[in-house]
Simulated assay, not measured.
Amino acid sequence: MAEFVLVPGTWLGAWAWDEVVPELRAAGHGAHALTLSGVAEKRGVPAGQQTHVADIVDEVERLDLRDVVLVGHSYSGIPVGQAAERIGDRLAHVVFVDSNVPADGESFVSGWADGRAAIEASIAETGGFWAPLAADEFAAQGLTDGQIARIVDRSTPHPGASLTEPAQLSRPLTELSATYIKCLLDWPQPSDDVVELLKSERWRLVEMNTGHWPMLSQPQELARVLCESAEPAR
């Protein structure tokens, strides 16, 4: 049995995994969805990127989890990738769900050549937070109108410091046992940094024919992929 720690991307809380958690538990695994500091029910808590790394590490240690599969969606691939090297032999595997990956000394916005200015402007205009997306920005992502409404209604501004603070890594990510899930409706190919990581024998690519929020658009299929990812780790 694996213990999944599920971390959502920007603007989302643990609720984003509500349809995935029961599927993992039905398959015999532990499943623990985590809300990062400053978002959802933890809104208002000051948080940088290293706060989010600590959130993940603290959750693993608080629950005394072993055989851990860390799962990071979107932005959260960055703190998850850092937490992975900090939980030591508790870690079994890492799954990056259509996510960014950390690079030592680089931040989330570092890789946004075209969109960095817009993100930084949004953070400045909203008092240090990145404002959530509007409903029309979820188009063509495999989501129903109801699913889009759910995301829009429950999203909260994301702490800007977590997006601009640099990652801190002591070892190459290629040393991790990892699965990268690419959601094809969002963009058909992984980013260049992920392509390089996938050259490692310890990394595997899985494609899903859905958009950037598979925990909402295809929760059962995502749970199946997560369960399969845990198999070689145990």
Rank of each mutant, 00 (worst) to 15 (best):
A139Y: 05
P166E: 08
A161P: 14
E175G: 05
E175W: 04
S162I: 06
I151P: 02
L173W: 06
I181D: 10
D136T: 11
T174K: 13
P159Q: 09
P172G: 07
S162E: 08
L176W: 03
S170H: 15
S162D: 10
D136W: 15
A161Y: 15
A140D: 15
A149G: 06
P166D: 06
T144E: 00
V152G: 02
L184M: 00
G160F: 02
R154D: 02
R150K: 10
Q147V: 07
T144G: 04
S155D: 04
A149P: 01
D136C: 09
F138I: 00
S170P: 02
L143S: 01
L163F: 09
S177P: 00
G160I: 03
A178I: 02
A167D: 07
F138H: 05
E165H: 12
D145M: 11
A140R: 14
A149M: 04
T156Y: 03
Q168V: 13
L184F: 04
T164W: 12
S177E: 14
P157M: 09
G142V: 02
T174L: 08
I181Q: 12
E165I: 11
P159E: 12
L176R: 07
G160W: 04
A140W: 01
A140S: 15
P166H: 09
I151W: 00
E165Y: 15
H158I: 04
P166V: 12
I148S: 01
E175D: 14
E175Y: 05
I148M: 02
T156H: 05
P159L: 12
C183Y: 12
G142I: 01
L184R: 11
T179P: 00
A149N: 04
L185C: 10
P166Q: 08
A178S: 07
H158P: 02
T179E: 09
A167I: 08
G142P: 00
T144C: 03
S155G: 05
R154K: 12
S155N: 06
Q141D: 05
T174D: 13
T144M: 01
K182H: 14
P172E: 09
G142W: 03
S177A: 15
I151M: 02
T179K: 13
L143C: 02
T164C: 08
I181M: 08
R171Q: 10
